[in-house]
Design a protein around this nucleic acid. Structure first.
Lengths: 198, 198
DNA sequence: AGAAAACACGAGCAGCCGCTCGCCTTTCCT
DNA sequence: AGGAAAGGCGAGCGGCTGCTCGTGTTTTCT
C-alpha cells in the first residue's frame, strides 16, 4: 500500500473530530461543510479529498461510533454471567457502560437522536439497534421463560426506549445531579421490568 | 375592525394546515416556504402577506398547539379530584388525553421534539412545559407529603420525560399494538411512581 | 360610484450551500 | 535525481432558499 497514509489519516481524524464537535453544537444540517473545513483548519477542497460529500462524513462518524458502541455492548452483555445476577445488578451492569459511552461521545446523540436523519445514517444505525434489541430480548426471555415472543419483544423495545429517553437528561445534567438521574433510570427500569420478570 | 378578516383568516388556516402537514412529513428546515405556499395552493407572495417569515409560521402553529394542549392539560388535571384516585386511575386519567392529543396532532412532535429547534419555538414551548412540570410536581408532592422539594422536582421531570419518550412509539404503532404500548406506558409510570409515593 | 384597504400574484434578488477544478507543494518510490 | 502519487488550496459554479416588489384584482367602506 503506497500513498500518504500517515498525513491523510491524520487529516481524516481532524475532519471527523471537527465535524463531531460542530454537529454536537448545532445539529447535522445546520453545519456547513465549509464550516467543518474551517474548524479543522483546512480548505474546503482538502475536505473533499477524503470525503465524497457531507453525508459521507456523517457516515464515517456513524461507523466509528457504531464500532465503538458495539464494543461497549459486547463488554456489557458478554462479560459476566448476567443470567445469574440479581435484577438490580443486571441493570447497573448494562446501564453503566452505556452512560459512560454517551458521556464520552456527546456528538453521538446529535447524529442519531434526530427524528429526520439522512437515510445513510438510518442504515448505519439499524443493525446496531437491532442487535441491541436482540440482546435485551434474549435476556428478558431467559429470565422469564414463559413469556410469549411478542411480549418479549415489546418489553425489550420499551426498555431500550426508556434508556434512550433518559440519556439526554443524564448527559445534560451536571455532576451532582447526574448520579441521581442515573439512579432514576435504574429505578425506572427496575420498576418496569420487575413485574414482567416476576 | 375593518379589513378582510373572513378571507384572510381562511388563508391563514390554509397555510398553517399545509405547513403542519409538511413539517410532520419532512421536518421543519427541510420544508421550504415556497413548498408550503404551493401546498396551500397560493403564491409565495401571498404567504408573506400573513406571516413575516418562516419562523413566524412555526410560531403561530406552536401557539395553536400550545393553546390546545394547555386545554388538554387543564381538563386532565383539574377535572376530578385526582388526589383521591388510586394510582392506576390517576395515571390513566392523565395519560389518556395526552395520547389522544398526540394522535390528533401529529405535526406537534415534528415541531417540538427536535433537538435543535429555533429559539422562537423553545420560547413558545417553555411556559407550557414548566406548567406541566409544576402540575405533576404538585401532584407528586400532595401524594407523598414528606418528600424533599428537589426529589419532588426530579421525580416530576423523570415522569414527564417517560411520557414524552413513549409517545413516538405509541403514535407510530398501528391500532392493535398501540393499546398495548399505552398499557406499557402506564406500567412504566406505575412501576416508577409507586415506590416513590410509598 | 368611487376611493381605499386587503388580498393575490409570480418573476426574480441576494445570499448561502454543497461541491468542483485548475494549479501548486509535499512526500514517497526507484 | 526525478517522476508519480497524494495532499492542499481557494475562487467560484450551479442550484436552492427565504423573501421582495411592482402590479393587478377583489372586497368593504362612505
Amino acid at each position: 500500500m503506497t500513498g500518504r497514509q500517515a498525513r491523510g489519516q491524520a487529516r481524516m481524524d481532524q475532519i471527523m473530530a471537527a465535524a463531531a464537535e460542530a454537529f454536537a453544537e448545532s445539529g447535522y444540517e445546520a453545519v456547513s461543510t465549509n464550516a467543518i473545513a474551517a474548524r479543522a483548519g483546512i480548505s474546503p477542497g482538502s475536505l473533499y479529498q477524503f470525503f465524497a460529500n457531507k453525508d459521507d462524513i456523517a457516515r464515517a462518524l456513524a461507523e466509528r461510533y457504531t464500532r465503538s458502541l458495539s464494543e461497549v455492548h459486547a463488554a456489557a452483555f458478554d462479560g459476566t454471567d448476567l443470567a445469574a445476577l440479581p435484577l438490580d445488578e443486571l441493570i447497573a451492569a448494562i446501564t453503566g457502560p452505556l452512560v459512560e459511552f454517551n458521556l464520552a461521545h456527546r456528538g453521538f446523540k446529535a447524529l442519531f437522536a434526530r427524528p429526520d436523519l439522512p437515510p445513510s445514517l438510518t442504515a448505519a444505525a439499524a443493525p446496531l439497534h437491532a442487535a441491541l434489541l436482540g440482546r435485551v430480548a434474549a435476556l428478558v426471555s431467559s429470565r422469564a421463560p414463559g413469556l410469549p415472543p411478542d411480549v418479549v419483544e415489546r418489553t425489550a423495545t420499551v426498555a431500550v426506549q426508556l434508556v434512550r429517553a433518559m440519556m439526554p437528561l443524564i448527559v445534560a445534567a451536571d455532576e451532582p445531579q447526574r448520579d441521581a438521574l442515573v439512579g432514576e433510570l435504574r429505578a425506572v427500569l427496575h420498576g418496569y421490568l420487575e413485574p414482567v420478570l416476576r
